[in-house]
Amino acid sequence: MEAMVFVEGGAFMMGNPGGWAMGADTIPAHEVVLDDFFIQKYEVTQGDYEIFLDASGHSMKARFYDDKRKESPERFSAELPAPVSWHDAKAFCLWLGEQSNQPVDLPTEAQWEYAARSGGKPVRHATDNGEIEPGRNVSIASGPKAALYGDKRAMPDAPGRYPPNPAGLHDMTGNAAEWVNDYYAPDYYQNSERMNPQGPESGEPVTIAPGLQEPERVMRGGDYQGPIINSSTVSRRVVPESSMPLSSGFRCVKN
């Protein structure tokens, strides 16, 4: 498994520790205990994903995938994080596990946050120093104006351009919003399991088109288009599982 970083398990207080205005679904902070795991050092690139498509014959599940590729071809450059739906990200990770005969999957929400916080430390951003310094440890597009209003014209950075967090992981703040395995429930933190939580057993269906409903999943880490404050290590983004925001991306874990 190339570019996997070992993360030693342990206990941490998952969620908003208080004083971070990140939404009601980030509280209460609650103790979680995780086993050891490995997580990819970088976001999966479009080039990586094209290799998977060619080798596996996977059929994209993202709605309007072809239309989005035609409308924004530059967003699908080989060196950039791959924008996909939850289904497509999940398929890549499971395929990677099949090729290596290893238990590979999308990270749980708890694994993602623990890794972003370098072992559960109380840091607001997954940068080398826990702070946002545009042009040094995050994209210059995340400057003061974008910090407040976002930047709809920006592109994500190629993975690895800026320093990693202390755990050795790149781009977990404000690059591509990363899919995690969990269904979404706004009150899940009130009744989360303590040991290796897997998220809710199901998600509340939402209407995505006339006569079509599907559950929502969680994305973490903010994204290059939105206000940089939303890239907090505890903020949560909710997206229907077949949607494919151009600001999306993902990485896999080995359990």
Rank of each mutant, 00 (worst) to 15 (best):
E2I: 12
V5L: 04
V7I: 15
E8I: 03
P17L: 10
A21F: 02
A24W: 12
A24K: 14
D25S: 14
V32Q: 09
L34V: 10
L34A: 11
L34E: 11
L34G: 09
Q40F: 00
V44D: 00
V44Y: 01
Q46T: 14
D48E: 14
E50K: 13
E50Y: 09
I51N: 06
L53E: 03
Y65W: 15
D66Y: 09
D66C: 01
K68W: 07
R69G: 00
P73K: 13
P73V: 13
E74A: 11
F76G: 11
F76I: 12
F76L: 12
S77R: 15
A78C: 02
L80R: 07
A82M: 15
A82L: 09
V84S: 09
V84M: 14
V84L: 15
H87S: 02
D88I: 06
K90P: 00
K90L: 12
K90A: 11
K90W: 12
P103K: 08
V104A: 15
T108Y: 07
E109M: 10
E109C: 05
A110H: 05
Q111T: 08
W112G: 05
Y114L: 07
A116S: 15
R117W: 07
R117D: 07
S118R: 06
K121I: 08
P122V: 10
H125A: 09
A126L: 08
A126P: 12
T127G: 08
N129T: 10
N129S: 11
G130L: 06
E131I: 01
I132L: 15
E133R: 13
E133M: 10
G135N: 05
G135W: 06
R136L: 14
N137H: 06
N137E: 02
N137I: 03
V138Y: 03
V138A: 04
I140M: 12
A141H: 14
G143N: 12
P144S: 14
P144N: 09
K145S: 10
K145C: 02
K145L: 13
K145A: 11
A146V: 06
L148I: 06
Y149G: 00
G150E: 04
D151S: 10
D151E: 13
K152Q: 12
A154D: 13
A154Q: 01
M155A: 04
A158Q: 06
N165D: 03
G168Q: 05
L169D: 02
L169I: 10
T173K: 01
T173M: 01
A177C: 11
A177N: 11
Y183N: 09
A185H: 13
D187A: 13
Y188F: 15
R194K: 15
M195P: 01
P197W: 07
G199D: 03
S202I: 02
E204D: 11
V206T: 14
T207P: 02
I208W: 09
I208N: 04
I208M: 07
A209I: 09
P210W: 03
L212A: 09
R217H: 15
V218M: 09
M219I: 13
M219Y: 03
G221W: 06
G221L: 06
G222H: 05
Y224A: 08
Q225F: 11
I229G: 07
N230V: 05
S231F: 05
S232K: 02
V234Q: 04
V234H: 03
V234D: 08
R236E: 00
R237H: 15
V238F: 10
V238I: 15
V239P: 02
S242I: 10
M244L: 14
L246Q: 04
N255P: 02
